[in-house]
Each structure stands twice: as C-alpha cells, then as structure tokens.
Amino acid sequence: MTATATTPSQSTTIKPGTVVLGEGRFSGGDAYRALFRIRKGGFEYLGQVNVHLGEEGVRLEMFNANYFGLFEAEAEVVTATLERTLLNQLLGRDALNDRFRDVIHSRLEESILQPLEPLPAIKEEADPRDLQGIFDRLNAEYFEGKVEAGIEWSKETRIANRRSVKFGSYDARKKLIRIHPRLKQDFVPIPVLELTVFHEMCHQAVPPVRQNGQWKTHHREFKAREKEYKHYKEAMQWEKKHWAKLLAPSPSE
C-alpha cells in the first residue's frame, strides 16, 4: 500500500508504535530511500520512506496494509504522525546533504504549521485485554451482533509435563466462552487473544455439521469463517513460533 501523507489535526494523538529506521541508500543522486520497521501489538510491520529533491518530495510506503487496522483513526491520520517520526530520525543522518535536509525541513514545517483544531478530551484508555470489550467489538464487526454468549477467564490449572493447553472453549448448553488466563500475559499480542475469542464465537455462528455419521466441529465452513479475522495469518504464525513459551509455567505457578 502506498500512502501520500496528509496532516489531519488528530495526528498528534496517534501512537504509531516503536519505529526503527534501517540503513538508507541514494538513487540517482536525487532520491534517498530507507526501509523502516514498526513494532506494535506484538507484531512487526515494514515500510519505506522516500525523500526526493524533485516535485515528489516525501513519500511513505507501507508494505503491510493491515498495520492501519490497529487504529480507529483513518490511514491518513496515522501516516501523518508516522511521517513526522521518520523525518525527525532522518535529520540525524550525516549522509544527507543540505538539499535533502531542506526538503525534510520544508515537509515538517508544512505539517506543523497546519491549523490545529481543539482536541477532544482524552478518554481513559480501556484495558486491551477486557474480554467483554473484545467480544462486543468482534460481535459488531464480524457477526452483526448476532452471537449471544457470555465470556470469562477460565481457571489456571497445574499440569505436570504439559504438552498442550486448551486456550479457549465454548459451552453450547450454557452459551459461555471461556478463555485461558495464559493469554492475559503481556507478551501475548492482542490479535492472538482476539483470534481465540473469535474462534470460540465461530462455534456458535457456524455450528457443527454431521458428516459421514459423525459430528464435525471444525468443518470447511467453520475454517473459512475463522479466516475472516483480519489478523488471522499473523496470529497463527505467532502461535506456532511461541507455543513453547505459552505452555511454560506462568510466574504464579
């Protein structure tokens, strides 16, 4: 995804994540490009910042478009804040001559001098691991509010020689979703927790079907519905990479 930065007034309230600017390179003497990495929500996202001496000026490219899905604000608002962060980092590079610095300063001044509207009062930040909040948001976004179930953290259990843990369950009789408290740990990315909740919600939205004389829960339609979660691929990759850490005893054990 290519994004041309604008500077909405709300950009000053966005927290783009941990931004790490990589080594840059010159192209034809009139352009400078540098890759950057952003770590947010437990995942890494890649992009590139381009500085041109001509009319093109400054341009940002995000290679992972789903990065913008982490914010409630529009992509242009997020891009504006990210651009300011990257340009200020670029100004610290000795390799850039005065002509490139002039382009960067002009872009920063252009954005900073935009008239700012009064910012709304900052609301108290919600707990990102609030299960009810996650459930309500996913229900509205993916299920049209039709999933009717309670949700709660299950109890931690001590199991010797642990080889597996069931991180979520759905009790169809009670219409109750239980999530394992190991997913409450800070090192677990929020999308991994959300996917677990989403998976259990799918059990009600896409109930079991009878195939070859047996009831099948994770049938083709179920799996297709589960993959509709926007961070499905990243969450699954993280789980595969960190499953051993998830199975390790928690600090309270």
Rank of each mutant, 00 (worst) to 15 (best):
T2F: 08
T4A: 03
A5V: 09
T6L: 01
T7A: 01
P8H: 05
S9V: 00
Q10D: 14
T12N: 07
T12E: 07
T13H: 00
K15N: 14
K15P: 00
V20T: 15
E23S: 13
R25A: 14
D30S: 15
A34Q: 08
R37E: 14
I38K: 00
F43Y: 13
E44S: 14
E44N: 11
Q48P: 00
H52M: 08
L53N: 01
E56N: 07
E56A: 11
G57P: 01
V58F: 06
V58E: 02
V58S: 06
V58G: 07
M62L: 15
M62D: 01
A65N: 09
N66L: 12
Y67G: 02
F71N: 04
A73P: 01
A73F: 09
E74M: 07
A75M: 03
E76C: 00
V77R: 00
A80K: 00
A80E: 02
T81P: 00
L82F: 04
L82Q: 06
L82N: 06
E83I: 00
T85V: 15
L86P: 02
L86W: 02
N88M: 11
L90G: 03
L90Q: 03
L90N: 02
G92N: 10
G92P: 05
G92V: 05
A95E: 14
N97F: 10
N97I: 09
D98K: 03
D98T: 10
R101H: 12
D102E: 13
I104H: 02
I104W: 00
H105I: 09
S106M: 12
E110A: 04
L113I: 12
L116T: 09
A121I: 12
K123N: 10
K123L: 15
R129V: 10
G133Q: 06
I134G: 01
D136E: 13
R137M: 10
E141R: 11
A149E: 02
G150M: 04
I151R: 08
W153I: 00
K155T: 15
E156C: 07
T157G: 06
T157S: 11
R162P: 06
R163D: 12
S164Q: 08
V165Q: 13
K166R: 14
K166L: 13
F167P: 01
G168S: 11
G168D: 08
D171M: 05
R173C: 06
K174L: 13
K175Q: 15
L176G: 04
P181Q: 03
Q185A: 14
Q185H: 06
D186W: 06
I190C: 09
P191N: 10
E194A: 12
E194Y: 06
T196S: 08
C202L: 03
Q204M: 13
V206Q: 04
V206E: 12
P207T: 03
P208K: 10
V209A: 01
V209G: 00
R210G: 04
Q211I: 15
K216M: 13
H219A: 12
R220A: 15
E221V: 15
F222P: 07
E226M: 06
E226P: 05
K227P: 03
E228P: 05
K230Q: 14
K230D: 12
Y232W: 13
Y232V: 07
K233F: 12
A235V: 07
W238H: 07
K241A: 15
H242Y: 14
H242F: 14
W243N: 14
A248D: 13
S250I: 12
E253R: 11
E253H: 11
